[in-house]
Design a protein around this nucleic acid. Structure first.
Lengths: 162, 162
DNA sequence: CGCAATATGTTATACTATATCAAGTGTGAT
DNA sequence: ATCACACTTGATATAGTATAACATATTGCG
């Protein structure tokens, strides 16, 4: 269990560690983790699921940050740009990065998405390995970004198919 | 050059071969390749690029098939369901399958998408290999569907960065 | 201070996708 | 032949996702 998606863990701790790491990363890189951005990250960290932008927006609105779409999209832009959050393209939804440091440059995440419970586990895709990289080399193609997302059933939901 | 995305080829031939294969596959499996579905596939085959649903819809409308969204989405549903077309999740767009037979059951496509010229090359992802499958086994996760999409620069566009 | 860069507020709109119900078409069974 | 059924299409409306554009405020810094 390299990361917490499908496994029991101290979730309160998991959130606060990630927030601490994010603050440290922002401080070290002169990035502004403003209240709305901070709150957006907290919302995503509070679940190991991908949330839609309008779902996030509703929670931001409830917390007093305003209910217009750009409020959510701007915060998500900042957080994804700096690696605190990833977009799950297959769901048009967003999930907090599971790697506490926030951002490893060139970090290429892969996701396991449970269609039953919605939980998302993040793994390291190891660029330069795997079929994608092989196909790219063969074609003379330079990969700048990779979307690697698997959908299926997590260990817990396999046991309770209904 | 296993497939034609980034390379010169006899494109007219490439289209007609794919249409012939699609017809054969439909005939063999009691599927109805109706005029609007056929035309949609022709539109996508005519480019090695991913087209948005509304782009396709506009071309269907111009060809006299009606301009309401369900016209395009129903045709795309049919074509993707049976493996003639794939959705590129990172672009919310659709591309014709590059494997002429139409559908190999369990076929897991991977895509190389050029951000400059928009062309898409399709490769076989070889399920059960690569980082995704390794992470899934480690987590006890059953993969049902995989989205594997790389964005970057194709060989032609690398040479002309401007 | 005063400028430039960054961040937020606000309105409007564009783009992507599906629900729903009605009507037509084809196919096989009796 | 015609009935029943599944499948396909027509048409309207609406849901869901995302960005453009412009005004205002805040911050960092010379």
């Amino acid at each position: 269990m390299s990361n917490p998606g499908f496994h029991p863990h101290d979730h309160h701790r998991c959130i606060s560690d990630a927030m601490t790491a994010a603050e440290a990363h922002c401080a070290a890189n002169r990035l502004h983790l403003t209240p709305v951005r901070r709150r957006t990250l907290e919302i995503l960290l509070s679940e190991h699921r991908a949330l839609g932008a309008y779902d996030i927006l509703a929670r931001l609105d409830a917390a007093g940050f305003g209910g217009q779409p750009p409020v959510a999209y701007r915060a998500l832009d900042f957080l994804t740009m700096h690696g605190f959050v990833h977009k799950i393209e297959a769901l048009n939804a967003y999930v907090a990065c599971a790697i506490p440091g926030g951002t490893i440059a060139g970090h290429a995440p892969a996701f396991l998405i449970c269609r039953a419970c919605g939980k998302v586990e993040e793994a390291e895709a190891e660029p330069a390995k795997g079929p994608l990289a092989r196909a790219a080399r063969a074609a003379g193609f330079d990969i700048e970004r990779a979307v690697i997302e698997a959908q299926g059933l997590c260990p817990g939901c396999k046991e309770v198919p209904a």
